[in-house]
Amino acid sequence: MLAVKVPKREAEKVRRKLLELGVLAKGYSVKREGDFVFFPVTGPVEGFELVEAEFEKTGKRPHSYREVVEVPDELRPLLPSSFDIIGDIAITELPEELMPYGKAIGEAILKVHRHIKAVFAKGSKVSGEYRVRELIHLAGERRTETLHRENGIRLRLDVARVYYTPRLATERMRVFEKTQPGEVVFDMFAGVGPYAILLAKRAKLVFACDLNPWAIKYLEENRRLNKAFNVIPILGDVRKVAGRVKADRVVMNLPKFADRFLKEAMMSVKPDGVVHYYGFGPEEDLFSEHEAKIKAVARELGLKVEFLDERKVRPYAPRQFNIAIDFRVE
């Protein structure tokens, strides 16, 4: 077919011009030979070298795995509309009816998302003192360690051994933007360090505590990986650490049980320091129960609190939300 032949150094400028003229042929791959690039065109174009060339057709690439996966028609409405991507690992949640088709679903995800190398299904809820879940391998590589990037940092982790969700990346950046240079931060439930490593870019010092030895192992690696040497990893029960650390800012990212550690948080924050508290709340009344608990613990310790911000973070379950409350301890 007819083609415009141009030197490589001019290719991008010419491509834009051909698009502007409306003569660039669609559905074909651009061809490269030596120092030249060949663009397929729909007809003669003045001012360019025209040649005959053969081009490979390009098929329209699917945007979703649901366009290519093969499952019975009656089950298609049950296909998940989204899944978590952590590094090059995808983790999806399948209803029981789709589990027999797990391999086909996993392979469809790999086909559409070329950067994903392994696909797993959630085999259980997050549980236990280390907050991990069972994973069922569906397709791709049989490994659970990966390197994840978010907010300009790199996090190495094992999705089967530590708790991590990419769905809090925006919330972590929100806390980062509130953190002031020179602050001391106490991350009470640090995991592999998504808060701690990020906040270390602005804070003077970050104490990062976790009970899971695997989380601390990866936190130490991520500290080196990001050159965040002002992060101090602490393996152990936060109850034994509370009070020994005095911070300007405390992060309590343990939404299911954070209310049980309010005393420890308030013992660890400096006067006029800020606590970032997370919990779960029903849609009809997101914050009241948590506010009452925060006030009660403050009274018990002879302290006062000022609520600074309250917000929905993300949906958690039907009519349930992960919520955030920022409060100052006076």
Rank of each mutant, 00 (worst) to 15 (best):
Leu2His: 06
Lys8Ala: 10
Arg9Cys: 10
Ala11Phe: 04
Lys13Gly: 11
Arg15Pro: 12
Arg16Thr: 09
Arg16Ile: 11
Lys17Thr: 11
Leu19Gln: 15
Leu19Gly: 15
Gly22Asn: 08
Tyr28Asn: 08
Val30Phe: 10
Gly34Thr: 08
Phe38Val: 11
Pro44Ile: 12
Val45Arg: 06
Glu46Asn: 13
Lys57Ile: 12
Thr58Phe: 08
Lys60Tyr: 09
Val71His: 04
Phe83Tyr: 04
Gly87Ser: 11
Ile89Gly: 09
Ala90Ile: 03
Thr92His: 04
Glu97Met: 06
Met99Ile: 14
Met99Arg: 15
Lys103Trp: 08
Ile105Glu: 03
Ala108Cys: 03
Ala108Leu: 07
Arg114Phe: 03
Ile116Ser: 04
Lys117Ala: 05
Ala118Asp: 05
Ala118Glu: 06
Ala118Met: 06
Ser124His: 06
Glu129Ser: 13
Tyr130Lys: 03
Arg131Cys: 10
Arg133Val: 11
Glu134Gln: 15
His137Val: 09
Ala139Asp: 08
Glu145Ile: 10
Leu147His: 03
Arg149Asn: 13
Asn151Gly: 13
Gly152Val: 10
Leu157Asn: 09
Tyr164Ile: 08
Leu168Ser: 05
Glu171Gly: 12
Arg172Ile: 10
Thr179Gly: 14
Gln180Asp: 08
Gly182Trp: 15
Glu183Asn: 09
Val185Tyr: 00
Asp187Tyr: 00
Met188Asp: 01
Met188Cys: 01
Phe189Ser: 00
Ala190Phe: 00
Ala190Gly: 00
Gly191Gln: 01
Ala196Leu: 00
Leu199Pro: 01
Lys204Asn: 13
Val206Ile: 07
Leu211His: 05
Leu211Tyr: 03
Pro213Asn: 02
Trp214Ser: 05
Trp214Ile: 01
Phe229Thr: 09
Ile234Arg: 00
Arg239Asn: 10
Val241Ser: 12
Ala242Pro: 09
Ala242His: 09
Ala247Phe: 01
Arg249Met: 03
Val250Leu: 03
Val251Met: 03
Asn253Lys: 01
Leu254Phe: 05
Pro255Asn: 03
Pro255Leu: 00
Ala258His: 03
Arg260Gln: 15
Leu262Met: 05
Pro271Lys: 09
Pro271Met: 01
Tyr277Leu: 01
Tyr278Cys: 04
Glu283Thr: 06
Glu284His: 14
Ser288Pro: 05
Ser288Tyr: 02
His290Tyr: 08
Lys293Ala: 09
Glu300Tyr: 11
Leu301Asp: 03
Glu310Ala: 13
Lys312Tyr: 10
Lys312Leu: 15
Pro315Arg: 05
Tyr316Ile: 01
Tyr316Leu: 07
Tyr316Asp: 14
Gln320Ile: 05
Phe321Ser: 05
Arg328Leu: 11
